[in-house]
C-alpha cells in the first residue's frame, strides 16, 4: 500500500494492568511510520470492536498478561468480523502459553508475540502481512 500510512489500534482487553509492552509497541509502531491509536486498558471486547470499526484501522494489536486471552482475544475478533467485512490483521501479545497459540491462530490471529519480541520484528511483520493481503 504505497503512499498510505498503516493505521493500527493497540488495546488491552480484560482487567490486566500491565501496559508497559502495549505502550512500548504503540510508540515503536509510531516511530516505524504507522498511525497508532492507543486505546488503553481495562476494555471490553465490545468497546474495542466498536473503536476498530470507527477508526477504520488496518491492523489491531491486543495485549494481555493476566491469562484471560482465550476469552477476550477470540471474542474481540468475532465482534469485529460481525461489524465489518474489512480484512483486518490481528496480532496479539503477552504471557501466552505455547499450547494456546493454535486456538488463537484459529480464532483469527495472524501471529502471537511472546515476551522479548523485538519492536522492529513486530512492525516488519505487520507491514509485510498487510502488503501480502493487498497484493
Amino acid at each position: 500500500m504505497p503512499g498510505k500510512r498503516i493505521r493500527v489500534l493497540i488495546a488491552k482487553p480484560g482487567l490486566d494492568g500491565h501496559d508497559r509492552g502495549a505502550k512500548a509497541i504503540a510508540r515503536g509502531l509510531r516511530d516505524a511510520g504507522m498511525e497508532v491509536i492507543y486505546l488503553g486498558l481495562r476494555l471490553t471486547p465490545e468497546q474495542i470492536a466498536e473503536a476498530v470499526v470507527q477508526e477504520d484501522v488496518d491492523a489491531v494489536g491486543l495485549s494481555c498478561l493476566s491469562g484471560a486471552h482465550l476469552t477476550v482475544f477470540p471474542k474481540t475478533v468475532k465482534l469485529v468480523r460481525e461489524k465489518t467485512s474489512k480484512d483486518i490483521l490481528f496480532v496479539g501479545g503477552g504471557i501466552i502459553p505455547e499450547k494456546d497459540i493454535p486456538r488463537l491462530r484459529e480464532a483469527g490471529f495472524a501471529w502471537i508475540f511472546g515476551p522479548g519480541a523485538p519492536l522492529p520484528e513486530i512492525s516488519e511483520f505487520i507491514k509485510t502481512s498487510l502488503e501480502k493481503r493487498a497484493a
Binding site: L15, D16, T44, A68, T71
Partner: peptide
C-alpha cells in the same frame, strides 16, 4: 485475582476469563 482487586464479583461480565488467573 484481578476481579477482586478491581471490585467485581466473579460473575460480573468484566470478570470473564480472569477468574482465578492472576
Amino acid at each position: 485475582h484481578l476481579p477482586t482487586q478491581i471490585g467485581y464479583d466473579s460473575d460480573h461480565p468484566m470478570a470473564a476469563g480472569e477468574v482465578g488467573r492472576c
